[in-house]
Simulated scan of single mutants.
Amino acid sequence: MEQFQTLVEIIQDRASRDENGIIFISGDKQEEYVSYRKLLEQALQVLYELQEQGVKPGDELIIQIDDNHNFLNV
């Protein structure tokens, strides 16, 4: 079994193999599937935007999120 040190490593691994993804559930009947590859792409886009705003490794951020889908993408 592979040993990963971070969540990022796991998502990168799964995205490279195009394995499954995450299902977001909101309400009784609303579900949305996002593949690990798409999740990684979205995360890299957010990283790019933060870096463009001058955020550097080690900086602290306060993030207010209304739903789980946005939580994983911010």
Rank of each mutant, 00 (worst) to 15 (best):
M1V: 15
M1E: 15
M1R: 11
M1L: 15
E2V: 09
E2M: 13
Q3W: 11
Q3A: 13
F4T: 09
F4D: 12
Q5E: 14
T6H: 13
L7N: 10
E9H: 12
E9P: 08
I10Y: 08
I10Q: 05
I11M: 01
I11R: 04
Q12T: 13
Q12A: 12
D13G: 11
D13N: 15
R14F: 06
R14M: 09
E19F: 10
N20A: 09
G21I: 00
G21K: 01
I22R: 01
I22Q: 03
I22V: 03
I22G: 01
I23M: 01
I23W: 01
F24N: 01
F24L: 00
F24K: 03
I25N: 07
S26Q: 07
S26L: 03
S26E: 08
S26G: 06
S26F: 05
G27W: 04
D28W: 04
D28F: 05
D28I: 05
K29V: 08
K29W: 10
Q30H: 08
Q30A: 04
E32Y: 04
E32A: 04
Y33I: 00
V34S: 04
V34L: 04
V34Y: 00
Y36P: 00
R37C: 11
R37W: 04
R37T: 14
R37F: 05
L39C: 02
L40D: 02
L40K: 03
E41V: 02
E41I: 04
E41H: 07
Q42A: 01
Q42W: 02
A43I: 05
L44C: 10
Q45D: 03
Q45H: 13
Q45R: 05
V46Q: 11
L47S: 15
Y48G: 11
Y48A: 11
L50P: 03
E52M: 08
Q53Y: 11
G54N: 05
G54F: 03
V55N: 06
V55I: 13
K56S: 03
K56G: 02
P57E: 00
P57D: 00
G58R: 02
G58I: 07
G58A: 07
D59W: 07
D59G: 06
E60H: 14
L61H: 12
I62D: 14
I62A: 14
I62N: 13
I62Q: 14
I63F: 12
I63K: 12
Q64N: 15
I65G: 12
D66G: 10
D66K: 08
D67I: 08
N68D: 15
H69R: 08
N70T: 13
N70A: 13
N70I: 14
F71D: 08
F71P: 01
F71Q: 10
L72S: 07
L72N: 07
N73Y: 10
N73T: 05
V74A: 09
V74C: 09
V74S: 05
